[in-house]
Design a protein around this nucleic acid. Structure first.
Lengths: 228, 228
DNA sequence: ATTTTTAATATACAATAAACATAAAATTTT
DNA sequence: AAAATTTTATGTTTATTGTATATTAAAAAT
């Protein structure tokens, strides 16, 4: 027995974003086979029968980055009949915000970070998916301070402001930004300062936790709790 | 050849919302077969090979309601392996905001409107899907005046306020509401008033159009343009 | 010691949101 | 016909939030 409804394939694709070198970058893999041989693609894979969509996205993420401290959110499901040239593949896209310091990627000709402002030729509809993940990140940032998921665990307010500016794609006023940032729930002022960097040391901050929408956003952390 | 990736089935389910009798109501169908025989379900169907997800959702909507003037938005994709007891069905859920006046449903024991505040026993994870569509509607209403999609084409500000109160689930101040409503872009004041109703006549308003997010929200209208 | 660079901070003004009470137009009741 | 009732309609004050703007402090480099 073989019916039409079973001829779809379903995948998850994960847009993995971070900040490196003062730029938002996305992790891409080079395709070794047709279709779109030698084009770049978002990491993805088939959804297994035993796992739900979040688990599939986490698996893909783990396979590529081995991170355990990430923001992961279902983005949108793309199902145009022609998005895959050979077969009918519906993909449930996710996006992840990760910390560069948490990731040890062996950058290779087949796997690496690319500035979202300067993307290489992409396979399928992956350019659209990346653009949409940036838009969603902006929408999230207007509601909650997800930007810190892109920063090191300890960060300066200047770094935080830079992350906001990259995501929102506009300059922000320093004094107003700091006033609002300091009022953010969950922000913790540390008694530590940057050192060995240049000029005047900057105070370091961290985030204790975040409250996230339990349906659409998932914060996955294996970070051990600090001793109380 | 038969591989694991082809054993998923993919459906669309559409949460169809409207306001009837001063309450938000959702269109449900009674299941005639197992599983969940005699439970109520959101209208849905398999995605055909030739159509994209939006088209599948529109088809389902059209089959049930024959509407042509609706707000339709992809909601979320639900893919828990156990959400369907017999097989692996991943569903891409949509929600639609429709006008009661546009719909001529032959209400029957198998198809009808149900208050979202008083849902009958539901099949699968459909209760969760409906709850989430209400949450998303609230989020949308905080950004744009989608509520008017639930109202008649011509409506009073009192009706509009009532729609807001139902969606946001709280009382609003009349004067502040009207001040903000009147400042809403696209709202058109008509030279018409309610008649034959009770008490003092109320002025009627309408909306000219809406600007929607082109990716996540789709406004589908076949309404003929008014003669200029 | 002087210059350079980045960090840190406060106030005035504008815009938005929130609180609040009464008069007008129609119907219903007596 | 007058009075009571119900729904529509409207403005001002206050509090909160957002926006705009310039100078001093700490360290490194010269």
């Amino acid at each position: 027995m073989f019916n039409e409804t079973k001829t779809h394939e379903i995948t998850v694709d994960v847009v993995i974003l971070t900040i490196i070198n003062n730029a938002i970058q996305v992790l891409l893999v080079k395709r070794l086979n047709e279709p779109f041989k030698d084009k770049w693609a978002i990491p993805g894979g088939y959804v297994r029968l035993s796992e739900n969509l979040d688990q599939a996205a986490l698996r893909v993420l783990k396979e590529r980055t081995n991170v355990d401290n990430i923001y992961l959110e279902q983005l949108y499901t793309f199902g145009d009949p022609l998005r895959h040239p050979n077969s009918r593949v519906i993909t449930c896209a996710y996006f992840a915000l990760v910390r560069a310091e948490d990731i040890k990627i062996i950058s290779s000709p087949e796997l690496g970070w690319h500035k979202v402002s300067d993307l290489p030729p992409l396979a399928f509809d992956h350019k659209e998916i990346i653009q949409y993940s940036l838009k969603r990140t902006r929408e999230r940032l207007e509601i909650c301070p997800v930007a810190y998921q892109l920063l090191n665990e300890k960060f300066t307010l200047t770094e935080m402001q830079k992350a906001y500016e990259l995501i929102m794609d506009k300059k922000l006023d320093k004094r107003n930004f700091r006033k609002k940032a300091l009022a953010t729930e969950g922000l913790i002022e540390l008694d530590e300062y940057t050192k060995s960097s240049s000029k005047r040391p900057a105070r370091l901050y961290t985030f204790e936790s975040i409250k996230l929408d339990s349906k659409r956003a998932h914060f996955i952390s294996n970070k051990k709790k600090e001793k109380k």
